[in-house]
C-alpha cells in the first residue's frame, strides 16, 4: 500500500522513517522523496497489513499520513499504444499485451511523472 508522508522540519530534524522502521519492525520501501529545509514529502510502500501500524507510528512522530490511491491516468482517445512510456518508468507500470495493446499496473505507480514527459501523444497525466 502506498502512503504519502508529509512532515514539517521546523521543529527539528526528526528521523521519522528510521524511527518508524525501528519501532514497528516493518520494512518500508521509499519510492520517492522530496525534502527541503522546511518540509518533507515521502512516498512509501508498505505491506497492506502493516499500513495501520506504520501510520500510527508516523503520526506519533508528528507526520501526516495519507493513503495514496492516485496513479497515472491514461487518455485512451489519445494513446496509440506505442510504448514510449515503458522503458522510462522506474516502477514497471506499463507493458504491451500479446495483442500489442498498452496495459498498466496502476498499483505500482509512484506518481514520479517521467512517463508524462515521455509520452509523445500527451495521453498520460497525473492528478495531484
Amino acid at each position: 500500500m502506498k502512503l504519502l508522508v508529509t512532515f514539517s522540519r521546523k521543529g527539528g530534524h526528526e528521523p521519522v522513517i528510521a524511527r518508524t522502521v525501528k519501532e514497528t519492525g516493518v520494512l518500508i520501501n521509499v519510492e520517492r522523496a522530496h525534502i527541503d529545509s522546511h518540509a518533507g514529502e515521502v512516498l512509501i510502500d508498505v505491506p497492506a497489513e502493516s499500513a495501520e501500524t506504520v501510520c500510527r507510528s508516523m503520526v506519533g512522530a508528528g507526520a501526516n499520513v495519507k493513503v495514496l490511491e492516485d496513479a497515472v491516468v491514461r487518455d485512451e482517445n489519445e494513446c496509440i499504444d506505442c510504448g514510449a512510456c515503458i522503458s522510462v518508468c522506474p516502477q514497471d507500470v506499463f507493458f504491451l499485451d500479446e495483442n500489442w495493446h498498452l496495459q498498466l499496473h496502476v498499483e505500482r505507480c509512484v506518481l514520479c511523472g517521467k512517463c508524462v514527459v515521455a509520452c509523445p501523444h500527451n495521453a498520460l497525466s497525473i492528478l495531484e
Binding site: 496509440i80 506505442c82 510504448g83 514510449a84 515503458i86
Partner: peptide, 14 residues
Amino acid sequence: EIRTSSLSSFRKAR
C-alpha cells in the same frame, strides 16, 4: 538487461 521502448505503434501498424 536494458528495457526497450517503441515510439511507433505496432498495434496501429497491424
